[in-house]
């Protein structure tokens, strides 16, 4: 079993003014896994997606992709004070590698020999914690911000779909897929305009066509994307995301507005594309049938905080999850 880590969210926080939309979220997606991110409305699921894909720059935290730091922001000093407010501990706690109690005990020691020994032990432990932190995040203890724009992240190999379908609706199905091929094309604006590299253009077209055929959308290639029925638009959006040749696919509510029959088909479809395109999938979904059936690992968010993590059966029986979804039993009833 390959357990290579694809996506790793480390203490990601996204704060909008006084609202903490995502609060200290840590998520892992391993290669080939299907992971679901669920939670009631407004729990911060889409915000988490937006932090991963570079739409927002997280106010704190690290996102690594295939082991490489991709998005990172650990504001310290002056920068952190800009965010602090009532949520200050979100930013300071993570960096206190110091252990105040041990330090105080060492200083309070009377015997000089023991004191020196304790101090040395303390320094060693401190150094260990520091190096551990640095191993996790090579840029730890710096203010360095990594915040690539969404296009850079897509180029790294993360593709996404949107909660409310965002197709290029006035363009044809074929053009929609072809546009996704643009970023990997080896041509500049001159060679493209003057057709100096026809092979490249030909290759893009062939790849796009091949993808449409694999997805059984080839017969629709000249249809205007906006005129397709809803289900096909969803399908096309996923096909378009696949055209960017991703390693990780982020699906934002792929089953929204689908009936049980279509949801069932979607389940098979997601399994199929995972094996065919060698993908890992992170998805947000509200259809519990789909989530429980398909995902290997579920993360549950509520008010921005991670409240549970586990396999579908664990999540189904987790009292905190039930509480978040159904509300707390009223005291008066007891």
């Amino acid at each position: 079993m390959n357990t290579e880590n694809i996506l790793h969210l480390d203490h990601v926080t996204m704060q909008f003014g006084g609202v903490v939309a995502v609060n200290d979220l840590s998520v892992d997606v391993n290669k080939g896994q299907i992971v679901a991110l669920i939670g009631p409305n407004g729990a911060g699921k889409t915000t988490a997606f937006n932090c991963i894909t570079g739409v927002y720059e997280p106010t704190n935290g690290l996102v690594s992709f295939c082991g490489e730091p991709m998005v990172r922001n650990h504001p310290q000093g002056k920068m952190a004070r800009g965010y602090l407010g009532e949520h200050g501990d979100l930013y300071t706690a993570r960096f206190s590698v110091e252990d105040p109690e041990a330090k105080a005990a060492a200083e309070a020691q009377q015997d000089p020999a023991v004191k020196a020994q304790m101090q040395a032990d303390y320094d060693k432990a401190l150094e260990e914690r520091r190096s551990k932190e640095l191993e996790r995040d090579p840029l730890a203890f710096t203010d360095k911000v990594l915040s690539p724009t969404p296009d850079k992240i897509t180029q790294l190999g993360i593709a996404r779909t949107f909660q409310n379908i965002r197709l290029f609706s006035a363009l044809t199905v074929f053009e929609n897929v072809l546009i996704a091929k643009h970023m990997r094309a080896k041509q500049n604006v001159f060679s493209a305009t003057f057709r100096m590299n026809k092979a490249e253009e030909q290759r893009m077209r062939e790849e796009a066509m091949a993808l449409l055929e694999e997805q059984n959308l080839a017969h629709l290639k000249d249809e205007v994307a906006g005129s397709l029925p809803y289900g096909l638009q969803r399908h096309l959006e996923i096909a378009r995301a696949l055209a960017t040749q991703p390693k990780l696919l982020l699906l934002d509510e792929p089953a929204a507005g689908m009936n049980p029959q279509e949801t069932q088909e979607l389940t098979e479809f997601i399994h199929k594309i995972r094996s065919e395109y060698d993908l890992s999938i992170l998805m947000i979904e509200h259809h519990m049938d789909l989530v429980m059936q398909i995902s290997e690992l579920i993360y549950v968010l509520d008010f921005g905080k991670l409240i549970a993590r586990g396999t579908p059966s664990e999540i189904q029986n987790n009292p905190r999850v039930i509480e978040a979804y159904l509300g707390v039993a009223d005291d008066a009833e007891n």
Binding site: T154, K181, H182, T193
Partner: peptide, 23 residues
């Protein structure tokens, strides 16, 4: 050309265009 399609993508939907890797 490919660049023209990218322009049209930006016209249609900036966010989606960016998510498709268009700078």
């Amino acid at each position: 050309s490919s660049y023209g399609r990218a322009f049209k993508a930006i016209r249609e939907d900036e966010i989606a265009a960016e998510a498709m890797g268009i700078n």
